[in-house]
Structures are given as C-alpha cells and as structure tokens.
Simulated scan of single mutants.
Amino acid sequence: MGQLKGIKILLVDDEPNILQYLELGLTNEGYEVCRTLKKTDNASVIMLTAKDEVDDRVKGLTIGADDYMIKPFSFEELLAQIQARIRNQFPNLFGEVVVEDFRIDDRRKEIRFESRVLELSSTEYELLKFLILNQGLVLSKAMILDKVWGYDFGGEENIVEVYIRPMREKLNDREHRLIRTLRGAGYRLDIP
C-alpha cells in the first residue's frame, strides 16, 4: 500500500461510531483520512447508506456516486471497493498491478496470466482488466457495459456474453471456475 501514500479519503456519516470505525480501519490499511473536501476532478464517491430501496440507489448514483453500499456492510468489501476505485482512477500509480496470477501492465496494455501474455483485443483487455480489478465482486452486465463499452453504448447486453466466452478459452477456464456466471446477477472473477 506504500504506493498509495498521499491518497486522501473523505468520510461523511451522521453516525460518529461508524466514522471512527472507518477511520481506524482505513488508517490501519495505510490511508491518510481527509478531513476537508477539496474541489477536485479526480474524486470518486462510494455512498454508504441504510437506504436500500431501488429509488434511493438510483438517486444516489444519479447525483454523482460512483458506487453504492448498503449498511450494514463488510469492511473488507468497502476496502476492496476503495482499492478498485484507486486502481481504476489512478492506474499510473501502480505501473504494473499484480492480482494473484494476473499482471496488468496498463502502459503496455498487456495482461499476463500464469506468466504468459494473453492475446487480447482492446475491448477484451478492458473487460478482463475490469474483472480482475474487481475480483470477488459480482458485476452486472449493465455495470460491465457502462465501464467497458461506455454509457452511450447502444447495443445489447448480450455482447458481454459474446466476449466472456472466448476470454474463458484464453484463460483455459473451460469449467468456468475463474470467471463465474451468476444467473440473473452477472459475472464474478474468482481467483483460487
């Protein structure tokens, strides 16, 4: 986590106990907690809220949240979300990102798996990178389309399936143990 020195995280909550819990947990992970909000173009917002209705989530995402987690939440999941946001927003901080058997070199647009370079199109590269950086999390087709193809993509959601199939072949994942399909929910990359 040393390469993340200087990354600031603003915590806002109406429950002091939750703020203390988050501050302690994030400080122990090596983050410097920001006490004042500075105007910046590089801000990401993860909303933590007890409001779990679809309308509440839609409103939160519409007003600018990048992600939305419902209380009670797992600290480990929140930490993974923060790390994924930082990796996605500041890839140059990392140079080469290593996640288990994967090595992502964003400067070369290259992904290695088990020491071999995968032959990937630019879309396959972005899709696999998104799955790796969010490994362990369920990613809906809509979320994948938004992050990989862009919000203005006018095609069908099935394009995700079209790209997942050959990617599994390139990863020798014939039994779908690495890239799992969760019916009705999306996909999750599980690294054994």
Rank of each mutant, 00 (worst) to 15 (best):
G60K: 02
L120E: 00
E96L: 05
T36N: 13
K5N: 01
E32T: 15
L24A: 10
V160S: 00
H176N: 14
E77L: 15
R168P: 01
I132S: 01
E96S: 11
K8G: 09
S121H: 07
G136F: 04
L189F: 05
I191W: 05
L189M: 05
N172V: 09
E32P: 02
R85N: 12
K170S: 04
Q81G: 14
V117Q: 14
R177I: 03
G64R: 00
V148L: 03
T62G: 06
E77F: 13
V12Q: 03
I9Y: 07
A142L: 11
L189C: 00
T27M: 10
I18M: 04
P72A: 08
F113P: 03
K8M: 10
R168E: 06
E161Y: 11
G6R: 12
F113K: 04
E119L: 13
F73K: 02
K51V: 11
Y151K: 12
P16T: 07
F153S: 07
F90V: 12
I111Y: 00
N28C: 07
V33S: 08
D190P: 07
L93V: 09
E29R: 12
I46E: 08
I7M: 10
S140R: 01
L139A: 02
F153M: 01
Y68D: 04
G25V: 04
N88Q: 15
E76V: 13
G30A: 06
L19M: 10
G186I: 00
P16M: 05
G6F: 05
E161A: 13
L26A: 00
S140L: 00
E100V: 09
N42M: 12
L22C: 03
P192I: 07
E110F: 08
V33F: 04
E114R: 15
L133H: 02
G25T: 01
D66M: 04
V97I: 14
Y31G: 02
D14G: 00
L48E: 05
V54S: 11
A84H: 09
L24K: 08
L4N: 06
D105W: 09
E100G: 07
K39I: 15
N92V: 13
P192G: 00
E157C: 10
V12W: 07
E114D: 15
L145F: 02
N42T: 15
L137S: 13
E161I: 11
I164N: 04
Q89Y: 12
K39Q: 13
M1V: 10
T27L: 06
K59S: 02
N134I: 10
D52W: 08
P166A: 00
D67V: 11
Q135M: 12
G60H: 06
I9D: 01
R103G: 00
G60Q: 06
L26N: 09
L145A: 09
S44K: 11
Q135W: 06
H176S: 14
L127H: 08
D190C: 10
L139N: 02
E96G: 03
S44T: 14
I86M: 09
R165L: 14
E100S: 05
S140C: 08
I132H: 01
V45A: 01
E169S: 10
E126D: 12
D14L: 05
I9C: 00
F153G: 12
R107N: 14
A80N: 13
